[in-house]
């Protein structure tokens, strides 16, 4: 029910169109890249899905995390702009329910944009490589992994937005976080556990590291959920 309410609230805000547009933009990245440099990529020996991800995922992941930061900022900006938040607080609904409903909505929108990106990659596979059922399954695996690694970043962005009344402050914090993530060296495991840096990781043959990142992602989501509930309690005490 709450998810339905959050969906109603984003009417005429442009959130859905932004996620669709962002998904399409990210989907176009591998298409343009391969169109411009197909010879270079076709010469590589790795699996086609691996080639596509290694060559394009950094840019696509950057667009995805920026989309999540922006979406999170606007989802709470809707509440703060005309005092909707005040009304919600005076209704028999928990603030945590509001937060998790927004998280659910954002996750759904993220899935939509990732699906568009998967279609873009599938097009590249069918046009430049030989698209087979096994490649499709492999592509799904890569995107499922990418989706799970996006969750902590989205959650952190939403937590920042929940506690920052001003749109530019939550956006600024998100942008700083994304920039920090871009500057982290790719070979540093610990630093890459930063929620905004996780989405840049690609599913690799090193399954141990992939599993570590996956478990870290799920752990971060659980930890941030508890942290948010704790911060809510503190805010209520100070009110």
């Amino acid at each position: 029910m709450s998810l339905g309410l959050e969906w109603q609230k984003i009417k005429r805000t442009g959130v859905l169109w932004t996620f669709l547009g962002g998904g399409i933009l990210a989907a176009v990245v591998p298409v343009i890249n391969l169109a411009a440099r197909s010879e270079m990529y076709l010469r590589l020996q790795d699996s086609p899905v691996d080639i596509l991800f290694k060559g394009n995922w950094q840019l696509m992941a950057l667009l995805n995390i920026l989309l999540l930061v922006l979406g999170a900022c606007v989802l709470y900006h809707i509440e703060y702009a005309d005092n909707g938040q005040l009304k919600m607080c005076s209704l028999p609904i928990k603030e945590s329910t509001l937060f998790f409903s927004k998280l659910g909505l954002m996750t759904g929108l993220c899935l939509v944009s990732l699906s568009l990106e998967a279609l873009g990659m599938a097009f590249c596979l069918s046009h430049w490589f030989n698209l087979s059922q096994s490649l499709c399954l492999e592509l799904l695996k890569y995107f499922a992994y990418a989706f799970l690694l996006l969750l902590p970043g989205g959650m952190l962005a939403l937590i920042l937005s929940a506690f920052c009344k001003n749109l530019w402050v939550s956006l600024g914090c998100g942008v700083i976080g994304v920039c920090a993530a871009i500057l982290i060296p790719t070979d540093n495991f610990i630093l890459n556990l930063f929620p905004f840096a996780l989405p840049f990781q690609v599913l690799t043959l090193n399954t141990e590291q992939a599993v570590c990142y996956l478990l870290a992602s799920l752990g971060e989501v659980a930890f941030m959920a508890l942290m948010f509930l704790g911060l809510l309690k503190i805010r209520r005490t100070l009110a």
Binding site: T13, G21, H77, L171
Partner: peptide, 8 residues
Amino acid sequence: QTPIFSIG
């Protein structure tokens, strides 16, 4: 005018 579009 829509903030999400201009920022996006």
